[in-house]
Design a binder for these strands. Sequence first.
DNA 1: AAACGACTCAACCGCCGGTGC
DNA 2: GGCACCGGCGGTTGAGTCGTT
Length: 384
Amino acid sequence: MGRSPCCDKLGLKKGPWTPEEDQKLLAYIEEHGHGSWRALPTKAGLQRCGKSCRLRWTNYLRPDIKRGKFSLQEEQTIIQLHALLGNRWSAIATHLPNRTDNEIKNYWNTHLKKRLTKMGIDPVTHKPINDSILSDNKGPSKNTANLSHITQWESARLEAEARLVRQSRLRSSSELKSLEFPPSPLISVSKLVMPPTPTLPSLDKLKTLNDIWTKQVSAAGSSCGSEVESPKSTVNYSGTGMGESSTSFVELMRNSSGSCEDGIMKDGGEEEWGGLRSIFNPMDTWSNESLRLGYENVPVTRENFGDKFTDLLVNNYNSGDWSFSEGDGESDNVGAETNKNYWNSVLDLVVTSPSHNVIPSIVGCQFAMYGIKQIIYQDSKEYF
DNA sequence: AAACGACTCAACCGCCGGTGC
DNA sequence: GGCACCGGCGGTTGAGTCGTT
């Protein structure tokens, strides 16, 4: 039994807004801010439901909305973010300053989706259509898995940013009376809400971590069954010197403290967490001492962490086998090439685009690592 | 000029998660 | 825990516009 729609009340107007209505709404918000949307229509003298007012304001009347044609750069950004996030328009919109999620969604549906389809790219999976068919039969390839892992990092980051942007907007909405909008959410996220920068463990430490992780997967698997299985991460780290794993580290950590909390850790758990303890500084910073990442023997610092991690991702990606058929490697060279080029473009933009100078990968890595660190720390502090 | 189909996009709808009681 | 309320999100619709014949 759901709630009745807010516009069900008799006498409430629906359909296109008139200039007079716009004026009323604008004038009211300018003077009082929007406050409660439900109460707003009555106070503003509008025969509309609050939801309709909110929509009109957020999608049309807000003074910071940019209208008109999407630039090439914006198009690319949408495509690439869609590849990472799917139809999460509000998250995508946080990275296109002054564009609304509705506008982006419309533009995707009317232009970009068709264009990708014409190019032979599946707009849902962002893979060449032929490849989608192949991988349906053969399961995810190693390369797809690598990308999927990169996607997970970016996705986690973007989610975190979107969340912070929402919170920041909520906070700022109370100051709306002056109609002074906060700076681009991206900038505010990067500059204001950035958590303390963690640094990343070296590869050998990651290897150790991964071993522990793998052990925990089997331990958790035996006692928790399918609950610890991640549908997402199937990455093989052999190219970076890491072992194999089939479960997202984050999810594992969540699950190991959540659904499996009573028991599995007792069985050898102390030892495993002892291993973790040697990797992570029990204080609020990561041990800096042996943090090295990538192929150069250059210490990773707070300042260069993002670049280093990006290097790792990109090097791994560049050195990988980009044939998308696991078998003879000959059968789909064209498709593989197309795919590689496409993903080259995706990664290039996401990792290096100047238009994303406010969301560079360093931010993503920082968010992702910060999140993981928090989870590890929260879940394990009793062991430290 | 009229008819028709394709396209666009503002607006609506239903659902969901968060919050407070 | 259950309920109501609220805001937000993504999918869908349909009136208006545009292009073609």
